[in-house]
């Protein structure tokens, strides 16, 4: 056996097989999906025309981008005209009252994405601010846990659509202001998102806090740590991985709930976009809805990855990362 054959034998035939698997297999999956989508779309006709295939959806995305560009040009032009007009009036009379107004065009697709992100983040943060401290409390006290548990189990499966009418009415009644800081639709969707995304964080925090390793509790007992120190030094750090898992689930729920909440509360985000396209449907509507669907999926994915990165940065337990 010469040197060359020995070298060949020592090295695997495909040295970068793992790398190819990581790249090629997902691409195969996506291609297969596009093919199935394309074929299936060609066979579905609706009252608004053919169901959009991948190509139609790409065209719709392009259309949305063009609209965004046009709207931005209009806004720039409006601001230029306004500045010019005000300058002219000031030149004529230095004491003149000039008003600067924001351009009030219709919201473009990126605007709607931004609104959705702001709403989901406020709902999620609000939910976390309530769920984590409360979860710690009921995790620490088995009595409190026993009294809260039936309520949690009862409220957890409630759909956002059931909460929405109640939240809408309460917000309308309670939030009366001549110069509102927040739009009502924003509040309604934020609160609905909060109500629905509370539960995973709450339950995971409680379970994490209650499930502290018995040996670590014994360490704390031998050291005679005070209650506050015990909670701060032993219980909370040990619950951190579970809390993060809960937060990640909550964010996923929040994003799902948001779209439904926006549809019905008319909060100007992605949900409303889908609803509007559905209501005043024309030939392009289905394609545009399809773009929104993919965008919603993509943002959900990015949010989840973001939480995962945050967890990896902040949590001590680098092994408890699930897929």
């Amino acid at each position: 056996m010469n040197a060359w054959t020995r070298l060949r034998a020592a090295r695997p035939v495909f040295p970068s097989l793992a790398w190819i698997r990581a790249l090629i297999l997902p691409l195969c999956g996506i291609l297969a999906f596009l093919l199935v989508w394309h074929v299936a779309a060609g066979r579905i006709s609706t009252s608004l025309g053919q169901f959009p295939g991948p190509a139609d959806t790409a065209r719709a995305a392009q259309g949305l981008y063009v609209e965004f560009q046009e709207e931005r040009e209009k806004a720039v032009a409006f601001e230029a005209r306004q500045a010019e007009r005000n300058a002219a009036r000031l030149a004529e009379n230095p004491d003149a009252e000039v008003s600067v107004r924001a351009y009030a065009g219709r919201p473009t697709f990126p605007d709607q994405i931004r609104t959705s992100l702001v709403t989901v983040m406020s709902g999620f943060l609000l939910a976390s601010l309530i769920a984590v401290p409360f979860g710690v409390l009921i995790g620490l006290s088995s009595g409190l846990y026993a009294s809260a548990n039936p309520l949690i189990q009862l409220l957890k499966p409630v759909s956002p659509l059931a909460w929405l009418p109640l939240v809408t009415l309460v917000v309308s009644a309670a939030y009366v202001s001549d110069d509102p800081l927040f739009a009502k639709s924003y509040l309604v969707s934020t609160i609905t998102v909060m109500m629905c995304s509370l539960w995973p964080s709450l339950i995971n925090t409680a379970v994490g806090v209650a499930g502290v390793d018995k040996d670590l509790v014994n360490v704390s007992r031998v050291l005679r740590l005070g209650w506050a120190t015990h909670v701060r030094k032993i219980v909370l750090p040990s619950a951190v991985p579970m809390i993060f898992t809960g937060l990640r689930l909550s964010l996923g729920v929040a994003w799902m709930v948001l779209i439904a909440a926006e549809m019905l509360s008319q909060n100007p985000g992605l949900g409303k976009f889908v609803w509007d396209e559905f209501q005043n449907g024309n030939a392009q509507s289905l394609g545009r809805i399809m773009v929104a669907v993919l965008t919603i999926g993509l943002i959900g994915l990015v949010l989840d990855r973001g939480m995962l990165l945050l967890q990896r940065r902040l949590s001590w337990d680098k092994t408890a990362i699930t897929r």
């Binding site: 040996d215 014994n218 360490v219 750090p237 040990s238 337990d317």
Partner: peptide, 11 residues
């Protein structure tokens, strides 16, 4: 106490 499974705080 020196515990059977060391019981160090992992964080």
């Amino acid at each position: 106490v020196v515990f059977q499974n060391h019981s160090l705080l992992p964080w």
